[in-house]
Computed example of a mutant assay.
Amino acid sequence: MITDPLFYVAAIPAILIVGISKGGFGGGLGMVAVPLMALVISPIQAAAIMLPILCLMDLAAMWSFRGKFDRSLLKVLIPAALIGILIGALSFRYLSEQHLKFIIGGIAVLFTLNYWLRPGSNTPRQPSTLRGGFWGILTGFTSFSVHAGGPPLNIYLLPLRLEKSIFIGTTIIMFAAINYLKLIPYALLGQFDSANLSTSAILALLAPIGVRLGYWMHHRINQTWFYRICFGFLFLTGTKLLYDAFTG
């Protein structure tokens, strides 16, 4: 198990932020954990430590939002995400983390600016199998690589203007499917050694606390502010990814 105190100074707030995000805000800040933990350990090890914790958070979040999801959207998104995971696993040794962060960060920032600046952007958009498939593949791909699937999924779901509990529940089930599917290639790539798993077990104690805090906050913010916060998270995460890409 990792014993460096500096690691836990970074990891504990990271786990709580991710739990709050998953439990109440659509996972928009879910990508912050790996960058924070990577200040002390390698990004690859940070991603491996986070995955079992994310799986536990998904279970807690699904219980909180049970029965609240859009089945028709998931029928398109989950199979597409599986394709993205396979692409991520096959290209694991060829694409750098900086490449991935640049691509998804640029898309997230441009999309948010378009939403804020383009007249009429608040009009709900209709679901599309083509768009859902594309963003589902990109969600699976980026989630596999750096646990940064939130921005591409939000790019597709936010314009649909779903009722906020349906939005959150759909997002939770989507990432639960992705994260449990990722366990197989992560194990095959040798990411789950005893040090990583024991560290995950210690940090996992914080997972339900963060999720419940997010659920509590979710029911105390109205829908207008909810979407403003989500788009703000999307912009911040995109900006952070771009920063990491250029500085890396």
Rank of each mutant, 00 (worst) to 15 (best):
N114C: 11
N114S: 13
N114M: 01
N114L: 01
Y115C: 00
W116M: 07
L117V: 14
L117F: 15
P119I: 09
P119C: 13
P119W: 13
P119A: 07
P119S: 08
G120N: 07
G120M: 04
G120R: 05
G120H: 06
S121A: 11
T123S: 07
T123R: 12
T123Q: 07
T123I: 12
T123E: 10
P124Y: 08
R125K: 14
R125P: 09
R125A: 15
Q126R: 13
Q126C: 03
Q126D: 10
P127F: 03
P127D: 08
S128G: 05
S128L: 05
T129C: 05
T129M: 11
L130A: 14
L130F: 14
R131I: 03
R131W: 02
G132S: 04
G132D: 03
G132L: 07
G133H: 01
W135H: 00
W135T: 00
W135I: 05
G136C: 12
I137Y: 07
I137F: 05
L138W: 14
T139A: 08
G140I: 03
G140D: 12
G140T: 06
G140N: 11
F141N: 02
F141Y: 14
T142S: 15
T142M: 12
T142Q: 12
S143H: 15
S143E: 15
S143Y: 14
F144L: 14
S145D: 05
S145V: 15
V146L: 10
V146F: 09
H147F: 02
H147R: 03
A148Q: 02
A148M: 01
A148F: 00
G149E: 06
G149T: 08
G150N: 04
G150A: 04
G150R: 00
P151D: 07
P151Q: 09
P151W: 04
P152A: 01
L153R: 04
L153H: 07
L153K: 07
N154K: 02
N154V: 01
I155F: 10
I155L: 06
L157C: 09
L157S: 07
L157H: 09
L157G: 10
L158A: 13
P159V: 09
P159E: 04
P159C: 03
P159K: 06
P159S: 08
P159Q: 03
P159D: 03
P159M: 02
L160T: 08
L160I: 13
R161W: 14
L162N: 09
E163L: 09
